[in-house]
Write a protein that binds this DNA or RNA. Sequence first.
DNA 1: CTATATATTCCGACCGTTCGGTATGTTTTT
DNA 2: AAAAACATACCGAACGGTCGGAATATATAG
Lengths: 199, 199
Amino acid sequence: MIDTREHILNTSLKLFLQKSFKEVTMKEIVETTGLSKGAFYHYFSSKEKVFEEVVDFFLSDFMKFDFSNLSHDSLKSFYSDYLKSMEEKIQSAGKIGLVTGDTFNANHYFLLFDALKMLPSFKDKHLEHNQNELNAWTEIVTSAKKSGEINSKIPDELIAKTFIYLGDGFGMHLIIDGAASKMHELKPLFDGIYMGFRA
Amino acid sequence: MIDTREHILNTSLKLFLQKSFKEVTMKEIVETTGLSKGAFYHYFSSKEKVFEEVVDFFLSDFMKFDFSNLSHDSLKSFYSDYLKSMEEKIQSAGKIGLVTGDTFNANHYFLLFDALKMLPSFKDKHLEHNQNELNAWTEIVTSAKKSGEINSKIPDELIAKTFIYLGDGFGMHLIIDGAASKMHELKPLFDGIYMGFRA
DNA sequence: CTATATATTCCGACCGTTCGGTATGTTTTT
DNA sequence: AAAAACATACCGAACGGTCGGAATATATAG
């Protein structure tokens, strides 16, 4: 609790990951931080402003994926690393109290939907992020084909999209069902399509 | 505008598909229907109640998928039918003004998230729906293996989940990017994993 | 057919509460 | 003492919801 400003940001992030912007009230933010309204408005000029910063922070820390850090040896090792990073993310989500027991009580889509609606610049950033993710996967697929790791007539980008969408769909089910511990069930799915693309 | 009650329900559905429960105000519902507050509260006892009915309607009429109506000749014809049904759903969404030009301005996840939060009975219904979908896909996969259409060592349920999650992840991207016309891009993805599972 | 009684549908002013935000402090730090 | 950090009382607007009654439709009676 050294840095009050950061404390407010962390608390707000936690709240905005649990409910939508409208559902999170100033009263709630103030009470959860243990501060007062005066303190809050000393650091932020409005609820919108703290939301903006929360989104920025979340993007750079959570969503932004440094794909260059993942193994580029093979497609298999790439998605294995990818899955490992995902599990780590869930673990760090648990550390800030977003997982109680086995139950997920966070949903980053709240943040995403609100950001898309409220922050005009966000949509472009998000599309860029998506494009980067697609490019990273596509590159790996391309080199996996070159190396002979996989051998499929399906266009590289389609294979990349298959991995991405499969992961996203799985993640959505995870969030809705609230079962954080089932993250490991994604690997068999990736293994399955991987086998298919090898043939 | 014959049946006022139904008119309110349709209008509310449209609104609840565009924003969250909290974001939709009574003022908005009343003004969009062209009625008055008194008229609204003559038919519904609260905003929550109309939401409940909207959710019921949406589930039973929109979202609910009659898998028995899809072709059971083969896995390929099954998912082809599935995709066709999806396209029809988008078309009917367009008919009630949820698609302007090429842009999706609906997001059924608003409805889903709110329903999961507010309606205790909903989670079970939703899980049941998911289970039914999984069962339908799994059955098809099983018989596709028996008939020799596909020949994969991957468990039937995993294959089923791959199709489902891939579709969901794709749908999520569609909604977020707002590009309703790109629905057809899912077929190549399905074809891709289908080829893989045949080997 | 008309007139009256009764039920339904709809209206909009109004209510209490909560919302985000402000003004004006008091405490703490430098 | 000056400034930064925090607290609290308060504000107007917007919220969901209520209420008495007007308008309209339907049923009944003469």
